[in-house]
């Protein structure tokens, strides 16, 4: 179970209750937070309750820039302190960085700061996807050339900091064969059920911005029944990944990175088997790595 937000610790009692339930049921529990409510005491409490993995959002290596972006003074300091508190008690902690147009120029410095100065044991990096509030974010989504630049920087960082940076990026840009110093995450869409703040159920947080992707509500129906019966989840479990449209359908890595984030594909193209939008944009601008293409891609 991954508990995320907004800031989940604004509902601390709920978070503690969920962690307790995870422990009773033997579920792996992770939490993502901006760190503002993570005093050393709270971090210890989370660990005692069985939290296995903590992700702290940090966007910039500079207090003024991070606080300005987050719109709150002191967020940077809180995030850094939370990472250090968790590290001290050996709680598995990572700095989580979403890359967008405004913080891309700082990515190298950010990784150095995160991994050598804080120092966080690990960091997770991905290009921000245009879902929900991110669509209107003031940092700006990455364009195709910026996406390529991010991949180039991450390849360098993988060599500088082997085994400490996990990425959520298409294999056409970084992959385990060419970049063994990086770790590769995937979204496991075929095993994911997102529960929204109002109890709505969707794929991850997609239902917030696309109400048509909400397939039930845990307040009114058994979550297991929703998981078993909802057409969305049946599709994701049984058919998603077999065929993709657009550039993902013609890419040699489709079996491995699939379309990276089917929620983002749905958001942009209205289909879970549509291509990962940044890859499709790269292809349309003639920037997609040619060696990855098996034949001419169809439309998205």
């Amino acid at each position: 179970m991954k508990i995320t937000g907004g800031e989940p610790l604004l509902e601390k009692r709920l978070v503690l209750g969920l962690l307790g339930a995870c422990r009773r049921l033997g579920l792996y529990a992770g939490l993502e937070s901006n760190g503002t409510l993570l005093s050393p005491k709270v971090v210890e409490q989370l660990k005692r309750l069985g939290l296995k993995e903590l992700g702290i959002s940090l966007d910039f290596p500079d207090p003024a820039l991070h606080d300005e972006f987050r719109g709150q003074t002191g967020v940077f300091r809180a995030a850094v302190d939370a990472v250090r508190s968790a590290s001290r008690i050996k709680l598995n902690v990572s700095v989580v960085t979403s890359v967008f147009a405004t913080n891309l120029p700082y990515l190298r410095r950010h990784a150095e700061f995160t991994l050598t100065e804080i120092p966080a044991p690990n960091m997770k990096v991905a290009g921000v996807v245009g879902l929900g509030r991110a669509r209107e974010m003031n940092g700006g989504l990455l364009g195709p050339r910026e996406y390529l630049e991010m991949a180039t920087i991450l390849r360098e960082l993988g060599r500088l900091f082997p085994d400490r940076i996990a990425v959520g990026l298409p294999w056409s840009l970084v992959n385990p064969m060419d970049d063994p110093g990086l770790s590769f995450g995937s979204c496991h869409a075929d095993g994911t059920m997102g529960i929204l703040p109002d109890g709505g159920v969707s794929l991850c947080g997609l239902g917030v911005s696309r109400p048509e992707a909400v397939v039930g509500n845990v307040l009114t129906r058994d979550p297991l029944a929703i998981w078993r019966d909802a057409e969305l989840f049946v599709y994701l479990r049984t058919r998603w990944g077999q065929e993709f449209s657009g550039v993902c359908g013609a890419c040699i890595f489709h079996r491995y990175c699939a379309n990276v984030c089917p929620a983002y594909a749905f958001e942009v193209y209205g289909s879970f088997s549509a291509p990962f939008p940044p890859c499709q944009h790269l292809f349309e601008e003639g920037l997609f790595p040619e060696y990855c293409l098996l034949d001419s891609p169809g439309g998205a």
């Binding site: 064969m177 060419d178 040699i252 491995y256």
Partner: peptide, 18 residues
């Protein structure tokens, strides 16, 4: 066949494996 100085991989079109 994707071959580089530091290694490479083979892609099998029949099942998409590498």
């Amino acid at each position: 066949w994707v071959l580089r100085d530091n290694g490479g991989f083979v892609y099998f079109p029949e099942d998409g494996k590498i």
